[in-house]
Structure formats: structure tokens, C-alpha cells
């Protein structure tokens, strides 16, 4: 074993390992520091992420990818990106005029597609995840409100939206904070009977890193999300009391 390893070059070893992770492994050293090429690569990635934070949300494109699905547009109370970044409280509340336009109904569910901190993630992944999830929840048991496309939005804006619509459950698909290797990561937040201002993060369930092919695939995300949604409806709750057991192949040892 050791002989085989000794024969392999480190480059070969790290190349093989990089098939399993995008982490910046095996960078080598310049003394204690990073070799020049890797330091500059980090700067390039940071520059891309900085630029991604400020790219605008294209609600038309998302609506276009949801052909046949009714959609509504809303804005949060944060009027622009700069305010949004500094005032999360405004990103959690609907613009009052937009709130008044939401159609109140007897909805079991509303999907919210929210820009969050990466419009790119939403553009790339929100519509396919929504379609795949909806396909797993067939039948009249899920009376689903029009999909709400929300601009300058934080996760908790979904509480305000669900409350205004009269929806029992809300799924917020939202662009996560861009990282250096991932500027396109989508998060899904599930909340049962949200109460604006009273619901906390402990009352939600979250799937993060929806970002094929390197993160969670659209279909896997949909499977997990649909399982959580069914379980949430059975238990009439979401949050820390609801565990994601969908990949629990067999009971753990006692």
C-alpha cells in the first residue's frame, strides 16, 4: 500500500480527491503561505462573489421558466440593494401596497421564490426545484397559491406572504450568500403556520446547497422537501422537532 502511494505523485492524488470536493485542497506551499497562483485564484473568486451579490433579480425570467404556473410579484419594504444589505428587518416585511394585492384564500401551501443574496442561484435552480416538488405532491390535498416572486427578500418575508394569503405552509426558495466556490447555491426553507414576527428560525426546516451537479440535485432536493412537507403536515409543525429522516435507510442501532 505504502509503496503504491509513494509511486503516485501528489498531483495525481489531489486530482483524484478533487473529484469529491470543490474545497481548495492540496494547494502546496510557498513557505508558510499560499503559492502565488492560488492566492490570485482566491482573489478572482472573491471578486466574482462580490459582483454576484449585486446582480439584479430577473423576475420575468423566473416567471418564464414557470410556464403554466400562476405567479405574483412582490417587493419587500427594502427599496434598493444597499438598504437591503444593511436593513434585514425591511427585507422581512412586505411593501404595504404589495401586501394589499395578495389574494386571500384557503391555501394549504405557497411557494415563494426570493432573490436573497444570490439572484443567480434563483435564476438557475428555483423553477426546476419548484416543479419537481410540486409533481411529488399531487392531488387535491395541496391547494397551492400562486407562486410569489419576491424582490429584496429575506427568508422571513415568506411568513408575511403566507399570513397575507392565508396559507398554512410556506416554502421559500432563496439565493444563499455567495461563497468563493459557489455563487449559485439555493436554499429551501419550510415553515408551518408562520406567524410574522413570532416565528423564529427554530420553527423552520432548511435544505441548503441546492446546486447541481456539485451540491444537492433538483430531484433530490424535491424528494427531501416533499418528505419534510408531508411530515410537517402530519405533525402540524416544522422546526427542530421535525427531523429530516428521508435518507434513514434503516433504524440506527439501539
Amino acid at each position: 500500500m505504502t509503496d503504491l502511494v509513494a509511486q503516485a505523485t501528489d498531483a495525481t492524488m489531489w486530482a483524484a480527491l478533487r473529484r469529491h470536493t470543490q474545497a481548495r485542497i492540496g494547494l502546496g506551499r510557498a513557505g508558510s503561505g499560499l503559492p502565488t497562483q492560488h492566492r490570485l485564484a482566491l482573489q478572482a473568486a472573491h471578486a466574482a462573489a462580490r459582483d454576484a451579490v449585486h446582480s439584479p433579480f430577473d423576475a420575468d425570467a423566473v416567471a418564464g421558466a414557470l410556464t403554466g404556473v400562476p405567479t405574483l410579484r412582490v417587493r419587500s419594504a427594502a427599496p434598493d440593494r444597499l438598504t437591503y444589505l444593511q436593513r434585514p428587518d425591511l427585507g422581512r416585511r412586505l411593501d404595504p401596497a404589495d401586501r394589499a394585492r395578495l389574494p386571500r384564500g384557503d391555501w394549504d401551501l405557497v411557494f415563494v421564490i426570493a432573490d436573497g443574496l444570490s439572484s443567480r442561484a434563483v435564476h438557475d435552480h428555483a423553477a426546476p426545484v419548484l416543479r419537481a416538488t410540486a409533481a411529488l405532491l399531487p392531488g387535491p390535498g395541496w391547494r397551492t397559491a400562486p407562486v410569489v416572486l419576491a424582490e429584496q427578500a429575506r427568508v422571513a418575508l415568506g411568513d408575511d406572504i403566507a399570513h397575507a394569503l392565508g396559507a398554512t405552509m410556506v416554502v421559500v426558495l432563496i439565493g444563499e450568500r455567495p461563497g468563493m466556490s459557489a455563487a449559485d447555491s439555493l436554499g429551501a426553507y419550510l415553515t408551518y403556520r408562520p406567524r410574522p414576527g413570532a416565528t423564529t428560525d427554530a420553527d423552520r426546516n432548511c435544505l441548503s446547497n441546492i446546486r447541481p451537479p456539485l451540491g444537492l440535485s433538483h430531484s433530490d432536493a424535491a424528494t427531501k422537501l416533499a418528505a419534510l412537507m408531508r411530515r410537517a403536515r402530519e405533525l402540524e409543525l416544522t422546526g427542530v422537532a421535525l427531523k429530516d429522516e428521508s435518507d434513514e435507510a434503516a433504524p440506527l442501532a439501539p
Binding site: L27, S32, L34, H38, G179, M180
Partner: peptide, 17 residues
């Protein structure tokens, strides 16, 4: 973290270097 870049939490921290 590897290279100071956490690919799960999407933030930058110190690196092993």
C-alpha cells in the same frame, strides 16, 4: 479551512496556511 474558503457555509475564514 482549505484555502480559507468554506464551500459549505459560503464564507471565508482563516486557512491552514
Amino acid at each position: 479551512t482549505p484555502g480559507g474558503d468554506d464551500i459549505m457555509l459560503n464564507y471565508q475564514s482563516a486557512s491552514y496556511h
